[in-house]
Amino acid sequence: MILSEPWRLLVFVAGIIAFIALNAAYLVWLERKVAGHIQRRIGPKEVGPFGLLQPLADGIKLMSKQLLVPKGVDPLLFKVAPLLVLVPAVMSFVTIPFSEKLVARNIDIGLLMIFAFASVNVMGLLLGGWGSNNKYAVISAARAVSQNVAYEIPMLITVVTMIMLTHTMNLNEIVIQQAGGVWNWHIFANPLMPIAFLIFFICSLAETNRAPFDLGEAESELIAGFHTEYSGMGFGVFFMGEYANIIIGCGLATILFLGGWQCPFGILPGWWWFLAKVYFLIFCVMWIRWTYPRTTLWGLLNLSWKILIPFSLLILLLTGAMIKVWPLITGAS
């Protein structure tokens, strides 16, 4: 069935929203299960088999709760902020290729667009924190902003390296370049790429405010950070946005480094492989969260400025050298 372009886009966006909502619900379930087993307990198990209906129960609970708007908040900012977190995430999904055909809009600057939208996300946190009229929330919002700014730099440098390597910002094309077996994945393109992958992964952890970089939420310091004052679906939307951002972070890592929807063995459709890789990365994100204590803001900035940025710059330079200088040497001989 061929749909005209606007309709196709609409169907995809609806699909993406459903995907995000469902994912947020079941990632929470997964997170609780992973946390449970790491801590040698079971996790949710009462509602439905293996607790599989727990997200449904939680969703109903969140939706049926009153949307409390506390006294003294800025009503407009307070209500808009959760959407400012969720909507950019939805927009970013538009360019992510789930398989060769399964992509809402295959545009040439997909990578750029995702990063453009990713910076809007932090705006949502800032406004939510500021609009809440809560000191904890303001501290948290300020933290989230400085953290995001600091980590965007090494992340973008790594992405620039990738663009130099692939000569394109079209995500689907990047994936297509990695066809033909595990060894063609960009993570193995040259010896520096595993480090680049690591940097990218750490940065996406920090960008999505995940532990050990969950300074914005730091429950033992700031109660619940920027969403302290949110109840019901306001909180729910923040949550969905957060998990959507995790999927985007892991999805990008998969596309850029792990071959996207390319399957190493030629079995099963592409989207299956894409999701498998993404969920594996998400599992790692959870695994990390339930292992480490939280860093402080200084620790975080130190890591960014003293380790990640120098290393990513080094990789950028070396990759550039490899691309430009190496052919000259070999070509000259």
Binding site: I38, R40, R41, I42, K45, W287, T291
Partner: peptide
């Protein structure tokens, strides 16, 4: 510090995954 730190982080991940595959200890 970089190598030592990275190693300590990897060791930590190893411990949690080790416990993850062990049976649960809680009484239901």
């Amino acid at each position: 510090e970089l190598f030592g730190g990275t190693k300590s982080l990897a060791v930590g991940l190893g411990i949690t995954i080790k416990y993850m595959v062990k049976p649960v200890v809680t009484v239901q």
